[in-house]
């Protein structure tokens, strides 16, 4: 089970959360101007990376708020969590922390 750091409530077990899929997929400003290809891509295409993945979680049994998490989909290590509206973290920097092992990742979390 993941321990997910909610930016509002702190670290809590995965059972308190609901997964919300890939993050930073903005709904098109004017959907009626899109062609089928672009609308289908918005609805259905996902990056599904083997590596760092920015994703949404909702603390449904806590503050009930959505927020974003960066997680490594190979080891399931969580490298960052941040509020909706905040910029996506530097993924390359997080990848370097990950390469240093889970301890380096945990140390980075504490120093924040």
């Amino acid at each position: 089970m993941l321990v997910i750091p909610c930016p509002y409530c702190g670290p809590r077990p995965e059972l308190e959360f609901r997964y919300g899929g890939e993050a930073h997929i903005a709904r098109p400003e004017d959907p009626s101007t899109l062609d089928d290809e672009a609308w289908g891509a918005f609805l259905y295409l996902r990056s599904n990376p083997k590596g760092l993945h920015a994703e949404r979680w909702r603390h449904i049994h806590g503050c009930a708020r959505y927020f974003n998490v960066v997680r490594d989909t190979i080891s399931d290590t969580i490298l960052a969590s941040y509020k909706v509206g905040e910029a996506k973290p530097d993924m390359d920097a997080l990848a370097r922390i990950l390469a240093g092992g889970p301890r380096a990742a945990a140390g980075e979390e504490k120093s924040k």
Binding site: L2, E14, R18, Y19, N48, E55, T73, I74
Partner: peptide, 9 residues
Amino acid sequence: GTDAYTSYS
């Protein structure tokens, strides 16, 4: 069932 989140683990 599947786990909630995408993963290759």
